[in-house]
Amino acid sequence: MKAAAERKIWRPGRSLVIAVPFIWLLLFFLAPFAIVFKISFAESQLAQPPFTNLVEWAEDMLTLSLNLFNYKDLVEYDLYLKGYLTSIKIAFFSTVFCLLLGYPIAYVISRMPPHTRNVCLMLVIMPSWTSFLVRIYAWMGILKGNGLLNNLLLWLGVIDQPLAIMHTPTAVYIGIVYAYLPFMVLPIYANLVKHDHSLLEASADLGAKPWTSFLRITLPLSIGGVIAGSMLVFIPAVGEFVIPELLGGPNSIMIGKLLWAEFFNARNWPGAAAVAVVMLLLLVLPLTLFHRYQARDLEGREDA
């Protein structure tokens, strides 16, 4: 009934309103993936553009050449294999750290009186509106050998040798958790704040202690927010380039950095495309998971 009413309102011009954003996204979001896929089978060449065509028409012959060399490279050089593994490992643990830090923050904020709640939420979001690059840059000054953290710790007498944090996986973890924390807090908060308080009262009324109530009621009901937040951290973190580039070192070479190097330094576009295709394949599952929860939110559905 409701759908029918909606249709009645927007009938004329409906197709146009759908078509404009739809076509834009098809052209500039979806089609590029097809092209990446195509070019990942091309050969690198010194020309403009720096790759070969897959289909050639020469001397009355149509030749289709699929070059699997780029994928063979990915398997044969353990640099890539290690890059993928490192990326997934770093992204996974960063997500876990973000969750451990972000869930309590979201929980505390959701339990505040509405006025304080809005101010606190604003304070969580604000850093993510300021420049990402600048925030990572800020950590460079803090973490490096003669940086602020080491100076502070030396001055306090906690250590007598500067800690080597910069250019280690630790620095990358700090950077990712720092940059992505707000993206974990927001969806969890949005979920927690909608919870019906009477459920917790019912749980207490039935004899559950506060901690049991949290584990049995609040936590399972907030799983949607946890998954959305985790995917908002995990997926971009897998392909992260800036953070490993600026804070990481030889032990934290992530796949985003390899793709970048392949493209900008080696100018091997088909190679970079193959790296991207494999990364995309690895992310299909997390992307589907994210889409399921996000779409539910966007379409205003409440079913579990």
Binding site: L26, F29, I235, P236, G239, F263, A276, L287, F290, L298
Partner: peptide, 16 residues
């Protein structure tokens, strides 16, 4: 196509 760009790694979007 609305939800995916929110999380798509930038290197992939940029390259594609």
């Amino acid at each position: 196509m609305i939800t995916a760009p929110l999380v798509m790694p930038e290197v992939i979007t940029g390259l594609s």
